[in-house]
Every structure is written in structure tokens, then in C-alpha cells.
Amino acid sequence: MPQFVRKNGFWGVRVNWVEHLNKKTVYRRKYKQGFKTKREASMWANKFLAKANSGELVEQKIPTFPDYFMQWARIYRFTHITEVTKNRYIVTASHLESYFGSKPLNKITRSNYQEFLNEYSKDHAPSSVNKTKGLIKSCLDSAVADGLIRVNFSLGSQATGNKKKKLVVIYPNVEQIENILNLALERRKPYYPSFYIIITAILTGMRLAEICGLTWDRIDVENRTFKIDRAYNHLATDKEHIFKTLKNESSYRTIRVSHNLISVLSELKVNGSNLVFAEKNNPYKVPYSNGVKHPLKKIIKDLDYNLGDFHFHSLRHCHVALLHHDGIDWYSISKRLGHENLTTTLKTYAYLVEEDKIKSDDLIETQLDNFLTIGEKIGETSKKHKIK
């Protein structure tokens, strides 16, 4: 109940209320004076207590930028992304921690954030900067919705990244791809599955996790198909969790493969595991990341190819190059790769699409020249038979 006091011709009022903070009960009180009438004091007290009882007066502790970023990531992102993608969020949080430290989120200005981007851009490639900006913008949109900040201070920020940090991949031509494949075939040994993984990547275009998650029951020998419906979880600590879901819905697919590839892979059955590419002495362990990166680098080095930052995922490009060379249409290639749509495929392999455009332009030019020649011949014939 409010307690009223009249002093020097004015009214004052004292109110008491209870707050519950982190499972603790805290008793609060407030006194306000200067009201001309008791009724004014009573009206103020009633409004104040209404806010207090609804929790509006509880002071909200504003988290630091990196703390809120990780809290947001765990709640809204980690439930449906891969471990590799999770690591990107963790790395971003570490950069925020290094720059902003314990500064509360609501104390950061647009200028502060722009200065952070300027520093970050010095040592990171444009693609990395754009990805980081995207993650932070989504996080700050959530902070606005949570009432922690009034506006998203990342809006209007500018950062291009350091183009010198951009890793350039030089994709091999068809002859070089065939040489990489042949050397992998020569070096394959059943007790060392890494070369079989490289061979499979070139001949199927499958992602590394998709290849490593392949089991014998997913290989249809009679119809020569691979059923791709799960991926290998290289971070699993027990056999019950060695599989994970695929990247997206369109990644679930069945692809045709050659009889020769199935024949080569059948050599791995001597390792005695349901996992096609399992190591000989560990039926649930498959070579991953460095386990395939180093053998691939050795092949490239021994062939004396300068392919820049060529890595395992580049073998997916090699597969596309082989299909494209043999005249396979882009829609079929897109479906085989498990892309969400044709636009993704055309954007990813734009350099090959440009080759198509050049060939088409040359063909169009040739055809138009033929039409012009035909037109000239028709004109000459018309003159000969012209009626005088």
C-alpha cells in the first residue's frame, strides 16, 4: 500500500514492491514528492506499482557483443547447421571478443563497428568479410527484436576485404584431370582408402562427407547407382553418431555411376566394414580432411601442376568439367550435384558457362556468315533469271 506524507503544503508518496532476480527475492522502495494534491500522488503511485508488478522496472543486464552473438547462435543457428558451419560462428565470436572485449552491446556505435570491420578487412579475403558481415547483421537484427539495442548498428557499414588474401584456385583442364585420376588409380591400396576417396570424388562429384558416409548397402551393383541420403560425421565420438543429415533437401539423391568405379571400390571390402572407405583396423573411422588432403597434394606435386589453392572440394569442379566436356546439359549436372536449383550451378561454374557462351557466339557468327553467303548466291541467281 502507498504511504502518503504531506509536507510544506505538498504531498509525497512512498511505494514498496518486490522483484525476483535470478531466483532471488529483492525488496524495493521509492519515495517521490512535490504533488499538489493527494489524488495526484495516488495516481502516480498506482501507475508506478503497475509497472513494477509487470516487471518493466527490472533492470536488464546488457550482455557483451561476443556473449550475445554466441547466445544467439546457439539458440537460432546451431540446431540446424553442420559442425563446420558452427566453427565459423565460433571464430567470428573470437574476433568480436578480441576487438570489443567486455563492452556492453548497447554501448557500441556504428562508428565502433565500422572501425572493427576496417581492421578485420585488412587480413581477410572479401568473401570472408561478406560472410562475417552477414552473420553479424542477422545477430543484431535479433538484438533489436530483444530490445537490447534500438537500431542495428551494422546497417550501412562498408568493407571490401583484402583482395590479396583471396585464395585463387586454378582448375585443371580435362587432360590434367585424367592424369590426376590415373595417378590415384595407380597408387590405390585397399588398406589406404584415401586414394579411393579421391577417385570417387572425380567420378561422381560427391561432397567429401557424402563420400565418407557411403555404405555398401547404398551401392546398387545391378543398376549401377549410389544412394546418397546421409553424410559422415567426422566429429562423432561413438558409432551411433557417425552419420548426419545432408546439406539440404536437394542433396538427397540417387546417381548413376560406372561399372568400373564399382569394381574398383569392391577392392575395399577386404577391410571388413559396412563403411565403404573405412580404415582397415578401425571399421568406423574414415580418412577425412587431412587424410585426403595430403595424398591429393602429393599427386598434384608429383604431376608438377601449378593449381594454386587446389583442394579436395576442387575435385567436384573436376567432375563437372568432365561432364561439361562430354556435352552433358547443365540441368542434369545440377541434379547430379544435389544443388537446390540450376541458378546455383550456373553461378558456381560460371567460368565453364562462359566457355559455352564463347562457343555459342562463334557458332552463331559462323551460321550468320553462312546465311549471308546463301543470300548472296540467291541474289546472283535472281539476276541471271531476271525477266527483261
Rank of each mutant, 00 (worst) to 15 (best):
H311F: 06
L322N: 09
N306T: 11
C318P: 11
S334Y: 03
H319K: 04
H294A: 11
S314E: 09
D329E: 14
Y305V: 02
H313V: 13
H294I: 13
D304S: 13
L337K: 02
H325V: 02
V320T: 11
K298H: 14
F310Q: 00
G338K: 04
W330V: 09
H319C: 12
H325R: 12
N290I: 08
F312M: 00
S334L: 01
S334K: 02
I299N: 01
G338W: 12
Y305T: 02
G291Y: 05
E340V: 11
L315I: 07
N306Q: 14
F312P: 00
D302C: 04
L303I: 07
L322E: 11
H325A: 15
G308A: 11
C318L: 05
L323M: 14
L322Y: 11
S332Y: 07
L296C: 07
H325C: 07
L315F: 04
D309Q: 09
L296V: 13
W330L: 10
I333H: 01
V320I: 08
D309H: 14
F312S: 00
F310P: 01
V292Y: 01
D309K: 10
L296G: 04
R336Y: 07
V320D: 04
D304W: 10
I299V: 13
G291H: 06
C318V: 06
S314R: 07
I328F: 15
H325M: 08
L307A: 04
F312L: 00
V292M: 03
F312R: 00
H311I: 10
Y331R: 05
H339A: 03
K293I: 15
K298Q: 15
N306K: 14
G327E: 14
K335G: 02
K297A: 15
R336M: 07
S314P: 14
Y305F: 15
K293W: 13
G308F: 10
G291W: 03
H317T: 10
S332T: 15
N306A: 11
I299R: 02
L296E: 05
G338N: 07
Y305E: 02
L307I: 07
V320K: 03
L303S: 08
H325P: 01
I299M: 06
S314K: 09
Y331I: 10
N306V: 06
K293L: 12
I299W: 02
P295Q: 06
D309L: 01
W330Q: 11
S334E: 00
F310I: 00
V292D: 02
E340A: 15
I333S: 02
H319G: 05
N306D: 15
G308L: 12
L323W: 09
L337E: 02
L307S: 03
S334I: 03
E340F: 05
K335Q: 10
Y305S: 03
I299F: 08
K301S: 13
I299S: 03
H339F: 07
R316E: 12
G327S: 10
I300P: 04
Y331E: 08
L303M: 10
K298W: 15
H319N: 15
D329S: 08
A321Y: 00
K298C: 08
K301D: 14
I328Q: 10
D326C: 07
G327I: 12
Y331C: 01
G327P: 01
G308H: 10
V292A: 03
G327A: 12
L307T: 03
L323R: 08
L307K: 05
P295N: 06
D304F: 15
